[in-house]
Design a protein around this nucleic acid. Sequence first.
DNA 1: CGTATCTTTGTGGTCGCACACGATATTATA
DNA 2: TATAATATCGTGTGCGACCACAAAGATACG
Lengths: 339, 339
Amino acid sequence: MARISVGTVDRVIHNRSGVSKKSRKRVEDILKKLDYQPNIYASALASNKKYAFACLLPQHLDGEYWTAVEAGINEAVKTYSDFNASVSFSFYDPYDYHSFLEMGDKLLNDGPVGIILAPTTPEYSKPFINRLIEKAIPYIYIDSLLKELPPLAFFGQNPGQSGYFAARIMMMMARENKEIAIFRMIHQGIVGSNQQENRELGFRQYMKEHHPDCKIWELDLHSNQPDTNNRTLDNFFKQHPLLSDCITFNSKVYIMGKYLRTHKMDNFHLIGYDLLKQNVDCLKDGSVSFLIAQQPELQGYNAIKALCDHLIFKKEINRINYMPIDLLTKETIDYYHNK
Amino acid sequence: MARISVGTVDRVIHNRSGVSKKSRKRVEDILKKLDYQPNIYASALASNKKYAFACLLPQHLDGEYWTAVEAGINEAVKTYSDFNASVSFSFYDPYDYHSFLEMGDKLLNDGPVGIILAPTTPEYSKPFINRLIEKAIPYIYIDSLLKELPPLAFFGQNPGQSGYFAARIMMMMARENKEIAIFRMIHQGIVGSNQQENRELGFRQYMKEHHPDCKIWELDLHSNQPDTNNRTLDNFFKQHPLLSDCITFNSKVYIMGKYLRTHKMDNFHLIGYDLLKQNVDCLKDGSVSFLIAQQPELQGYNAIKALCDHLIFKKEINRINYMPIDLLTKETIDYYHNK
DNA sequence: CGTATCTTTGTGGTCGCACACGATATTATA
DNA sequence: TATAATATCGTGTGCGACCACAAAGATACG
């Protein structure tokens, strides 16, 4: 239509040099008139590039929260495998800040073209992120967002808002009760996750606004000391016989659920986070009333998708993507999709 | 590897005739050993077939429930446009059973290769479905499922379960109250949707199991008579001054919400279905406490996806796909995705 | 005007696959 | 054994894009 060869059209489409102004204009006009959309599949076929991504997550046992994120990432890589997308995983110790840097450094040796990471604290993330910026490697945050080091995209829940919401649901159940409790999970004195703390902040915000006179007890449990925990809990409940509503902001509510079950504390209301298999079991047997979910599989999936959209399909992508705050119960859990 | 040309390999892959048993076996073995996965994009590129789908939905005004389904379908067609997928819509009058058949007939003239429909009653759907079976055109149900006329796939919520769940949430709010109310929306004496009735059945099931002594009032409103409705409501609330918890199983809870707002009935709890803009407004201003959603966009999207998976990519697809039962509140609505 | 240099354009091979058509091998029949 | 019929196989072209390289046109300079 523009009376020139496909080569020239190609140069215009890819904004390459070596085209006269006249020809360029002519081609651009026609492109616009036709609303030309390149066939991304043919394009990927022809360009035949490799896209090796890297992913840096906290170490975890099978079945814990991060397993779901991994699954979503693998799923996405599979769907994009025809575009030559691949991913390699590295894991850092969330309770040892140096580990993050070390694994980050190592991962760069493979020359990845895009990175997905669950960042640790801003101070310790910064040197690594700076190297990525230097090398112009796009990176995506999962789970928690460092606003001061803006990524290509972020996928995760708004922790404050989810805590705020959790408080409302809790108080619907608590009715006239004037005391509730928060259980924390710590490891060698370190919380190890920003999310937990921010959820609690949102929770307390709601309580201050709507139930300022409700007493909020707190109890710290230790992630790897079941026996101590049991004794701690025995003591705690002896001291608070009227308590019947508790929440925990980490993903291990099943520890509490099992305790309630073995002690036959049936009229207890428990709210927790994330759909670990053991949590879901508690939900189904009634020891946990509500679980709040955040679609970790989708977070992982969307992270890969965002990298592909950016690098392969040259699409605009949203920077901040808060995941839905999903409330699950015994009645709805069977219909919930993970992706 | 099998010492034969690509032509023969091609014949094996597509299960076409004209290959000796020996060669076929050899190729199949190698294919399996390599875990060969065809590049579906290259495949679609080369085959260059057209896929025209048709979609048959109830008539509706802009902004009503079905608009969202349409949006999801259009979105999906766009993502599959490089595979030459397209769709055309037809609409039937849900209060006139003959309309369904008539529009169904008309739509077949274009020779669609796949159909998406929101079925009406089994009796009236059957003749149309039979024609589809005759012509071997795959069809997908959206919203409601006719088990006796099994489709290629179904996408929709389990209405009974969602009603059952709604009852639990309602009674969490109702606390010690001993009476609640159900509002129905009818049109010329016809309910026009199976979903509404089945949700109510599930709701009553829960009430029977958990609150057998709770009184359930009922009130029928008419979809196109606002003045009559207002008078009906005035009367109703005069007769039931203690009532403070209501539910409606159709998507027009905003009618109730607006009534409550204009009458300053603040301590009222209202539960409704679907995220129409007006419903969401009520949720945000507090006149509606909870909305139950079912991701209509995703239903539409997945319907197209299922047809493409089946016809283009020859993938196995799930027949029965219940959508999640999502509970939304003022606190979580802003984080909810529609697709 | 001839040559060198730079700008602009065209050509042809490629990606992984589908498919039509023609070629060769094998078997059946006279 | 020659020929026909059938079974099996190979080749070439095209899908829509990418891109390296070569060719042609334009401009500058001596």
